[in-house]
Design a protein around this nucleic acid. Structure first.
Length: 828
DNA sequence: GCGGGCTTGTTACC
DNA sequence: ACCGGTAACAAGCCCGC
């Protein structure tokens, strides 16, 4: 028996003699590669109908214990059963815990449980790894002291063929009180190819970057540089790649979009060359699972596609308009890719190869640095949610919420709800949309001294304050039963969700309880962060913040185990009610409301002092229910709201503010929309800035005239006129062929990469400009020859971007265009 | 073949 | 299919005249 300190990094499982085992890869405190083999009880639940007595339950157990299932060459039987008092969706239930040999047969055995005493079967749809973590409490990225026996020669049919220094059969697990800092060994990689479709073309080079480690493997032109390793051919290069990875021995192998490109491309090329891409610690090849997106798993090494994590966890904080490596790295690291215009290898000049190698290397350098920068987020997310790093790096926010619930439900004695079946998802999706947030209809104008209030985590605090969830939702019958049993003090609340009324128990449910703990922790770590700024606490606080924000969406998401449309609709309804009441209260204090959207309210300070505004805020807070809280978001010198393009009413979700430090805050305007050309965006931005700074339109008008003159004289560079639109589906799927679809087609014909999610760039030219010509007929690729269409850019880009803003000052931009001297106030 | 209303599609706000 | 609804707006589509 040996004892080691161990941190679990990657989880896998296997069958041996019909039984399930977990195989956990990790390190000891000296950095040695360790593999643990362990097992846990395998069971699921049969929830009994309400009136089944203890005695009947015992009888049923006997019958269940006789069940046997034959499948896939093994026979699984029920090992034992136990009757337990559990909770299911907050209700007390009697349930039989059914222990079996092999988790894979849980479904089949569950199917055989067609006894009339049984109401529901649950927890047969959790993964073995999730079950294992729950049962044995060997949580990822946490240090443990492990006692166990060294696995020798033929144990588990030669499972020790794994390339690890120690393999242990676990006997005892105890968490270390003192948790040392864990620094994973990270290796980043990136490939370059001639084609962008998996299965086409060849690999040209592969770069690898780790700590004090950089290499570019290539079978193309020789280089005198040490870090550029020459290979005989593609096969040799792939072999060397595998060797280099094994030698470096990383915990994490990371790429950017590597699930979708680098790893499957490598795998396909290896196949074509009749060789194995045996990266796994047991020399297995990467395994790809086909979801909506390909996912590449390597045994023992955590393969992380950084793009996926950035998309789920980081994108909402990023200013970047795309999530390309270049933009994300430049925002988060302040470093960019090396410039390189893609061309086929046959067209690359001899002297250009060195540059191409450095380009390839830089991508891995950026990926490596990004992984380092995001590591605290990976670590904290993993520790909070308690699923393996591999899943954490890929799961959607709804899965993260769900996994948090699964790993924190034990103390509620709750049996876990099942995942909805295919047809159930279909039904949920067909349900009608419920009414959402309230948006205030603004009156267009320029306002002085604007104050913004907002509710902190509004939807989350509504869910907690009113106890809105699947387990607290009362069907009509239940509601009536409750109202009969306790007449004086109503033990439920009624919520009007527009199309009907719904009811929720006041007895706190686990969802609200968990969410209130999440919100509490978020507050706690935010406070700690203010005292002691550090990346780990920041990441932890952020993890709780994201969970808080996703909880509402989760309950309204059709794929959720704890989906509850009524709870989601009630959350929105109570938020609407709450903000409308707050608006009325603020009005009663003599303030004018100019805007409100979902959880924020804009009011005019008028002649009141800041102090008086804060006093009103205090008063409102004293009367808010539960944990709901209204905050001061900020004081602004000025703000502007404009009319919609059609009609005279004020546009919602479009406004611009300037704070006391002259910082602009622009929402919804073309300035912040990437599907408008830079010229229109920058012109609008400048005009908003002039207006908000000066409180009038004079300078803005001068500026606008100058831009128009420059455009009319073709003095504006083409790159300022490029319009960018994302391709959201394949070209064939489009019913309406808009300019960006035509351009995508052109690109494809040219052999350029065209993929879903790509941002297509184009400009509008003068060519084919007939009377009824469509815009798409004049759209051209940025490097395509042509004259940009001055009229189009004036009429469809510049003027629409500024006319509603200047209209606030009664300036008609169309008369400006005609060259007439048109100044403000002239018209009325 | 023209114009306006409707649909499709993208992006933003919260 | 992989979190919700609200909203603005461009461009294409389509139908009645």
């Amino acid at each position: 028996m040996v004892t080691i300190n161990f941190i679990p990094i990657d989880y896998d499982y296997f069958d041996y003699k019909g039984k399930n085992y977990a195989k956990i890869f990790g390190r000891d405190d000296k950095g040695k590669r360790i593999c643990l083999i362990d097992s846990c009880d395998v069971f699921f639940w049969a929830i009994l109908k309400d009136k089944i007595s203890e005695k009947k339950a015992e009888e049923l157990c006997e019958r269940i214990e006789k069940i046997k299932v034959k499948s896939a060459g093994r026979e699984t039987r029920v090992l034992k059963t136990e009757v337990h008092h559990k909770k299911f969706l907050g209700r007390d239930v009697k349930a039989i815990k059914i222990f079996i040999d092999n988790y894979k047969d849980a479904h089949d055995i569950a199917d055989k449980l067609n006894f009339h005493e049984i109401d529901k079967r649950r927890e047969y749809d959790l993964s073995y790894i999730t079950k294992y973590i729950l049962e044995k409490k060997l949580r990822p990225l946490t240090w443990y002291s492990i006692e166990g026996d060294i696995i020798v020669a033929d144990d588990f049919a030669g499972i020790n063929n794994i390339e690890v220094e120690i393999a242990l059969k676990v006997e005892k697990i105890s968490e270390l009180e003192n948790q040392p800092i864990f620094k994973p060994k990270i290796l980043a990689y990136d490939i370059e190819t001639d084609e962008f479709e998996i299965g086409k073309g060849q690999l040209l080079m592969i770069s690898l970057v780790g700590e004090n480690f950089k290499k570019v493997l290539t079978w193309k032109k020789n280089s005198s540089k040490d870090h550029i390793i020459h290979c005989k051919d593609e096969t040799d290069m792939i072999e060397k790649f595998v060797k280099e990875v094994k030698k470096y021995d990383p915990d994490i192998l990371t790429g950017y979009f590597s699930d979708g490109f680098d790893l499957p491309y490598l795998r396909t090329r290896a196949e074509k060359n009749n060789m194995k891409l045996n990266l796994g610690l047991d020399n297995s090849q990467p395994v790809f699972t086909r979801g909506r997106i390909l996912t590449g798993k390597i045994k023992g090494i955590v393969h992380i596609d950084l793009f996926r994590f950035v998309k789920v966890v980081y994108s909402q904080y990023l200013q970047s308009e795309t999530l390309s490596l270049n933009e994300v790295a430049s925002e988060l690291l302040g470093e960019r890719k090396i410039e390189w215009d893609f061309k086929h290898s046959s067209k690359i000049h001899e002297h250009e190869w060195e540059h191409y190698y450095e380009y390839n290397l830089q991508d891995s350098i950026l990926t490596y640095k990004l992984m380092g920068k995001l590591w605290p987020d990976f670590l904290e997310f993993t520790k909070v949610i308690q699923e393996p790093l591999f899943n954490i790096s890929r799961d959607s926010m709804s899965s993260q919420v769900e996994n948090y619930i699964i790993h924190h439900i034990e103390k509620f004695n709750e049996i876990i709800e099942k995942r909805p079946h295919y047809d159930e998802i279909g039904e949920r999706r067909e349900e009608e949309k419920y009414e959402g947030a309230f948006v205030f209809q603004p009156i267009p104008g320029l306002y002085e001294n604007v104050v913004f209030f907002d509710f902190t985590s509004m939807y989350g605090s509504v869910i907690v304050s009113y106890n809105l969830s699947k387990s607290t939702y009362l069907e009509k019958k239940e509601k009536e039963r409750i109202s009969k049993s306790s007449k004086d003090d109503l033990s439920y609340i009624e919520v009007d969700i527009t199309e009907k009324k719904v009811y929720f128990s006041k007895k706190i449910g686990f969802f609200s309880q968990m969410l209130s703990e999440i919100i509490e922790k978020r507050k706690e770590y935010k406070k700690e962060l203010n005292k002691n700024p550090n990346p780990i606490i920041k990441a932890r606080s952020n993890a709780f913040k994201l969970l808080t924000n996703a909880a509402y969406g989760y309950q309204g998401f059709f794929g959720a185990r704890y989906y509850c449309r009524e709870a989601a609709a009630a959350t929105a309804a109570l938020a609407r009610k709450s903000i409308k009441e707050t608006i009325e209260l603020i009005k009663k204090h003599g303030f004018k409301i100019v805007y409100s959207d979902t959880d924020s309210i804009a009011l005019l300070k008028g002649k009141s002092s800041k102090q008086e505004v804060l006093e009103v805020l205090d008063k409102i807070n004293k009367n808010l229910p539960g944990i709901m809280e209204l905050d001061l978001e900020g004081f602004y010198k000025r703000g502007i709201w404009v009319t919609k393009r059609t009609g005279d009413i004020g546009a919602k979700k479009k406004y611009a503010l300037i704070d006391e430090e002259n910082k602009l805050k622009i929402r919804g305007f073309e300035t912040v929309r990437r599907d408008w050309c830079n010229l229109a965006r920058e012109t609008q931005n400048k005009i908003l800035e002039f207006i908000l700074k000066n409180g009038n339109e004079q300078k803005a008008l001068e500026y606008l005239k100058e831009i128009i003159t420059r455009l009319k004289n073709r003095k504006i560079e083409l790159k300022e006129l490029i319009i960018k639109t994302q391709l959201k589906k394949t070209i064939e799927e489009y019913k309406a062929i808009s300019p960006h679809v035509i351009i995508a087609k052109k690109m494809k014909e040219k052999g350029l990469p065209v993929k879903i999610g790509m941002v297509i760039e184009y400009y509008i030219s003068e060519d084919n400009k007939g009377k009824k010509s469509l815009v798409r007929e004049r759209a051209k690729l940025p490097d395509e020859k042509g004259k940009y269409d001055i009229e189009y850019y004036l009429k469809n880009q510049i003027l629409p971007a500024v006319e509603n803003i200047l209209e606030v000052f009664k300036v008609n931009v169309h008369t400006l265009l005609d060259g007439k001297k048109q100044m403000s106030l002239g018209e009325f």
